[in-house]
């Protein structure tokens, strides 16, 4: 039987992305994402000492559900209310200027996204990170497709504004 660390690494590389996708729609605050993700893998590693599950991803999901339940058990669900669309979201969004794109940094983009409201964070992660369609995201988050588009638009424009602002400084 391969070593525990080697097995853990193998499972992590194969299933980490799927677990992130599983968790991102279930968290109730942005800061919970890393905490819960970490806790799931810690518990998985601990249990590797005594077993190798036949279904590693399903086992991870079981652990994740336990962690989510533990964290949110005593909290009543607070869903962010859909903000009304105050402006018209253009069907065609103007692309980022090439010069701006060249200077943009993935780490700093993420630091902007992390500050967004939970639903915007979730929509951005699912759309850009996990290639989900607007329809899939709407269903996953329990909001309208227009709301998904609005949130993606606003986050994108905020990224543009922050980079442009930094550029102009």
């Amino acid at each position: 039987m391969e070593s525990r660390d080697a097995y853990f690494d193998e499972v992590y590389h194969e299933h980490a992305a799927k677990l992130k996708r599983f968790l991102v729609v279930r968290i109730r605050s942005v800061s919970d994402m890393e905490d819960i993700f970490q806790e799931v893998w810690k518990r998985f590693y601990e249990r590797m000492a005594v077993l190798r599950p036949q279904e590693p991803f399903c086992y991870l999901v079981k652990i994740a559900k336990g962690e989510l339940s533990k964290r949110y058990r005593n909290q009543s669900r607070r869903n962010e209310r859909e903000e009304p669309l105050l402006e018209t979201i253009p069907d065609e969004q103007s692309p980022f200027e090439p010069a701006l794109l060249d200077r943009m940094d993935a780490a700093q983009i993420w630091s902007i996204v992390k500050e967004e409201p939970l639903l915007s964070y979730q929509a951005f992660a699912l759309y850009y990170g996990f290639d989900q369609s607007v329809r899939q995201i709407a269903k996953a988050l329990g909001i309208s497709e227009d709301a998904v588009k609005a949130r993606l638009y606003r986050t994108r424009e905020r990224i543009r504004a922050e980079w442009k602002g930094a550029d102009e400084q």
Partner: peptide, 20 residues
């Protein structure tokens, strides 16, 4: 670029693996 932002920085995989 946005995909990289999500996949590389949503969580620090290296740290998660190490801490686990």
């Amino acid at each position: 670029l946005f995909k990289e932002a999500v996949m590389q920085y949503m969580v620090d995989d290296t740290r998660v693996m190490r801490v686990s």
